[in-house]
Simulated scan of single mutants.
Amino acid sequence: MGRYFGRKSIVYALTCIVAVTINWLVPRFMPGDPVLQMLISRGPDTNPEQTAVIMDYYNRLFGFDVPLWQQYLNYWGALFKGDLGVSVWLFPTPVADVVLRALPYTLGLLLPAILLSWFLGNKVGAMAARRKWLDNSVLPVGYVLTATPYMWLAILLAWSLGIVAGIFPTAGGYGFDLQPAVSWEFASSLAMHWFLPFLSLFLVAFGGWAIGMRNLVIYELESDYANYLAALGAPPRLIRRYAFRNAILPQVTGLALQLGVLVGGSILTEVVFAYPGLGNLVFQALLHRDFFLLQGVVLFIVIGVLVANFVIDVVYVLVDPRTRAGMQGVSA
Rank of each mutant, 00 (worst) to 15 (best):
M1E: 13
R7K: 15
R7H: 13
V11L: 13
T15L: 11
C16T: 04
C16F: 04
I17H: 08
I17E: 05
V18T: 14
A19Y: 01
T21N: 09
N23C: 14
N23K: 10
V26M: 05
R28Q: 08
P31I: 13
D33A: 09
P34W: 04
V35W: 03
V35I: 15
M38C: 00
M38Y: 05
L39N: 08
G43R: 02
N47K: 10
E49H: 10
T51H: 00
L61H: 14
F62G: 10
G63H: 00
G63M: 09
D65G: 11
P67N: 12
P67D: 14
L68N: 13
L68K: 12
Y72V: 15
N74V: 09
A78Y: 07
L79C: 12
F80M: 12
G85Y: 02
P92C: 15
P94V: 10
V95F: 09
A96Q: 01
L100W: 10
L100A: 11
R101K: 13
L103A: 15
P104T: 05
P104V: 06
T106H: 10
L107F: 08
A113I: 01
W118Y: 09
W118T: 02
K123V: 02
A126T: 02
A126K: 05
M127H: 07
D135P: 06
L139C: 03
L139S: 01
P140N: 06
V141N: 09
A147N: 14
T148H: 11
Y150A: 04
W152N: 02
A154Q: 08
I155G: 06
L156A: 15
I163R: 12
F168N: 02
F168E: 09
P169E: 06
G175R: 02
D177F: 00
L178D: 11
P180A: 10
A181M: 07
V182Y: 02
W184F: 15
A187K: 10
S189W: 00
F195D: 05
L196D: 03
F198D: 03
F198K: 04
L199Q: 01
A205P: 03
G207K: 09
G208A: 15
W209S: 04
A210D: 11
G212E: 02
V217F: 12
V217C: 11
E220F: 07
D224G: 02
N227L: 01
Y228M: 12
Y228K: 09
Y228G: 06
A230N: 15
G233D: 10
A234Y: 06
P236T: 02
R240C: 01
N246M: 05
V252A: 11
G254A: 14
L257E: 13
L259N: 05
L259A: 07
L262K: 02
S266F: 00
I267Y: 03
L268W: 07
T269Q: 09
E270P: 03
V271L: 08
F273L: 05
L278D: 00
G279A: 04
N280M: 10
N280T: 03
F283I: 04
Q284Y: 14
A285T: 00
R289D: 07
R289W: 00
F292T: 07
L294M: 14
Q295D: 08
V298D: 00
L299G: 14
F300C: 01
I301H: 03
G304Q: 05
V305M: 12
V307F: 14
F310G: 08
V311I: 15
V317K: 01
L318A: 02
V319F: 10
R322P: 08
R322K: 13
R322A: 10
T323M: 12
R324H: 07
R324Q: 14
G326W: 08
G326D: 11
Q328V: 12
S331D: 14
S331Q: 15
